Simulated scan of single mutants.
Amino acid sequence: MKFSSRIESCSLSPIRKFRPYMVAAEAKGRKVLHLNIGQPDVETPTAFFDAIHDFREKVLEYAPSPGVEVFVEAVRKYYEKLGISLADEDILATYGGSEALQIIFSCILEEGDEVLVPEPYYPNYDTFVKVTGAVIKPVPTDPEHGYRFATREQIEPYITDRTRAILMTNPGNPTGVVLSREETRTMADIAKEHDLFLISDEVYRELVYDGQSLSSMLEFEDAAENVVVVDSVSKRFSATGSRVGVIVSRNRELMDHAMKICQGRLCAATLDQIGAAAMYNSLSDDYYDTIRAEYRRRRDAVVEGLGKIPGVQFRVPEGAFYLMATLPVDDAEKLQYFLLEEFEDHGQTVMYAPGEGFYATPGKGRNEIRIAYVTNPDELRRSVELLGLGIAAYNAKREG
């Protein structure tokens, strides 16, 4: 049978595709420690569960396509605390940030269009863009310069008559880069001057360290027609299974088109929106301070451990909860198979996300990995220790 050439051009997620090998390793009695997926073990705020438990309607009805009123209002007030004034019409509830991206791309892209994305980048961007018939055009970055990209010299040479948007993550996944105010201003100016959409994935906004400040591209009201923000409760509240996100934009025409898709898929889940609204409405700045401090502890544990492994190179991340590292191996994907199929230390082994899948440029990232530092510091230290032992065993086997 024939399948879409667009879906056939897509790849499996480098973050999730090793699950069958993990299952096989566990069947052999090994414990697999996880550095591969952004699934925090921080407890979801009880306000989420309490709100759902207290739901007393006799019928679980469709939610309004734009979102449940209490959720949309909660999101609007959240941005108001950041100094950003929005109307309810500037917010659309979605099934997580992933659906927000899919809707945006469906509205603005067609066959042969291009989206500029600094690489390395979140691999699922590739799938969401390709199924529209468009392509990602990577903007190269490098660890030597901290994976930074927000300059005219780096962005403008890649803009063509087929470019429709620039997509960026701030704070960055997988690099942990946090853009400065000057850099975000530059990105807004480039988008305005070249009449491009600037899609800003800001799901890690609260997770900034070492004195970095919170920011949003929505601050630039002069770029209101260009800026589209993707946001979500998944990482902010450690509620990845709730699948509640938003599209936020003051571009009325875009939001009107997006509404067609929102109505076509009917609505995001009613109960999850109610639970998400409760988290937004009940949690104070102290909550964000607490989780920020916890993830900083986790980051520091990983950084300390990686520093003990000979030949590993990395930059200390400024935000989010990811880190890209270059390993002293020929191929990080081969190493991952080795770790899951052949290696163990005291009945344990480790998973990560091989780096090649975070690049569009062929051959890049082959000996890189992305680490998600989302478990407790002791487990992270052990995970990194296993990585170091596994690298030594893998290289000894190759050289032997």
Rank of each mutant, 00 (worst) to 15 (best):
E333K: 06
E206V: 03
S383Y: 03
V228N: 00
I108P: 00
R205V: 01
T240Q: 08
I391M: 06
Y373R: 04
G97C: 09
A51E: 07
E304F: 12
E344C: 06
R382E: 13
V374Q: 05
M259L: 15
L109Q: 06
D330E: 15
G264C: 10
L254V: 11
D142Y: 08
I108A: 02
G112L: 13
R76G: 03
A224V: 06
I261K: 10
E183N: 09
R152H: 11
F71L: 14
E57A: 14
S9Y: 05
L214P: 01
A392T: 14
A360V: 08
V32E: 01
R185M: 09
D272R: 12
E43P: 04
K77F: 09
F314K: 00
G347P: 08
L82T: 01
V329R: 00
R185S: 13
R152E: 14
L389S: 10
T326I: 13
A224Y: 06
D113Y: 05
D88Q: 10
F321K: 04
V229N: 02
Q263T: 13
T151K: 07
F314R: 01
D54A: 15
A74F: 11
P377H: 10
I199W: 02
Y337H: 15
R30P: 00
V129R: 02
Y122C: 11
E153H: 09
G347W: 09
H194I: 05
Y121L: 10
Y359N: 10
